[in-house]
Simulated scan of single mutants.
Amino acid sequence: MSAPTIPGYITGTWDIDATHSNISFTVRHLGVSKVRGRFDEVSGSITTGERVEDSSVTATIATASVDTGNADRDTHIKAEDFLNAEKHESLSFTSTGIRADGEDYAIDGELTVRGVTKPVTLAAEFGGIGDGLAEGSTVIGISARTEIKRSDFEVAANVPTGVLGDKITIELDIEALLRK
């Protein structure tokens, strides 16, 4: 399958702009509703290769930056039985491959949560390359989505079945700035 054409595609290294990026998640609660949250601190880079398939992504997310809009719940998520933010200060993703997937891309990689590393695939949509806000700057935009099982990463292993869903949907909207 041939890769989609990307207008304005250029090679380089791009630094993730945390201010203009969003890492969010959704998990089912009590089997009837969904709890949503986000992580406010993300860093990392995207390296665009000669071909999109030669590109790579690395990202680090501060576990203590979780925000669900409820301080008590955030404290619980940071605690030992969930993310254990005191011991595991970050979540990380490192790509292992990028491939065309119809009009979009699949980014294969390794996700580490609570010190447990598992393979994941992100369904990615290329948003574009354009001028940044600072004179002479260039930005890239990528949106991606994946689903993981919290049990695979030993998150909330002691929570009774039915209280918290095992499937977590993760959505990313990333803007990154081309290094000069």
Rank of each mutant, 00 (worst) to 15 (best):
15 D>R: 12
16 I>E: 05
20 H>A: 11
22 N>F: 05
22 N>E: 12
24 S>Q: 11
24 S>Y: 00
27 V>Q: 09
28 R>T: 13
30 L>S: 14
36 R>S: 13
44 G>P: 13
48 T>V: 07
56 S>V: 06
58 T>I: 11
61 I>Q: 06
64 A>R: 11
64 A>L: 01
64 A>S: 14
64 A>Q: 08
65 S>Y: 05
66 V>M: 03
67 D>W: 02
67 D>M: 01
68 T>D: 01
69 G>I: 02
72 D>I: 09
74 D>L: 05
76 H>W: 07
82 F>P: 06
86 E>Y: 00
88 H>I: 00
90 S>V: 04
90 S>A: 15
94 T>W: 02
97 G>E: 06
99 R>Y: 01
99 R>Q: 14
106 A>H: 12
106 A>S: 14
110 E>K: 10
112 T>K: 08
114 R>N: 15
118 K>N: 12
119 P>Y: 05
121 T>L: 03
124 A>T: 09
128 G>Q: 11
129 I>L: 09
129 I>S: 03
130 G>P: 13
135 E>F: 06
137 S>A: 10
137 S>R: 04
140 I>W: 01
141 G>S: 12
141 G>Q: 05
142 I>E: 02
143 S>E: 10
144 A>Q: 11
144 A>I: 11
144 A>H: 13
147 E>H: 07
148 I>Y: 10
148 I>H: 09
153 F>M: 03
155 V>N: 04
